[in-house]
């Protein structure tokens, strides 16, 4: 077991070492002639307006939150899945309740339309009062 950890460490060190070597070799042999225009942000020939460190659509955040809840749940289910046959009925019922609570939350999110990426014109009209 301890040897396995050592071997894994060795493997990671070799991987990182190889990558660093590739980067250093590239740095030595490649040309380096930067000038101001070359180092500007790419934008299809236009000058970039403003920075990109901006607030973006909140839906991505909602998705990340739901993901977090589900992923934690699934990781919690991992040890259960390994032993549930030995523990018997009680394990099954307990996890069934657990999953059902989670599914109720999922149904709520779904009914709130947080999982809809495109809202229909009717819904937009309801929210904004006009048809955009």
């Amino acid at each position: 077991m301890l040897l396995d950890f050592g071997v894994l460490l060795l493997y990671i060190v070799i991987a990182c070492g190889f990558l660093t070597a590739a980067l250093v070799a590239g740095r030595i042999i490649r040309p380096n002639k930067p000038y101001k225009d070359k180092l500007t942000t790419y934008e299809c020939g236009e000058d970039t307006i403003g920075t990109s460190f901006i607030q973006f659509n909140v839906r991505f955040y909602v998705i990340a939150l739901i993901f977090l809840i589900f992923e934690v749940e699934i990781v919690l289910l991992f040890p259960w899945a390994v032993v549930y046959k030995n523990v018997g009925l009680i394990a099954l019922i307990e996890m069934g309740v657990f999953i059902l609570i989670l599914l109720a939350g999922f149904a709520y999110v779904w009914s709130q339309k947080d999982l809809e990426w495109v809202k229909s014109e009717i819904e937009t009209e309801k929210e904004h009062g006009t048809n955009l």
């Binding site: 740095r27 040309p31 380096n32 002639k33 180092l39 942000t41």
Partner: peptide, 11 residues
């Protein structure tokens, strides 16, 4: 790719 210039944008 090794011989290509590496461009790091200023921003």
């Amino acid at each position: 790719l090794l011989f290509k210039e590496d461009i790091v944008p200023t921003n």
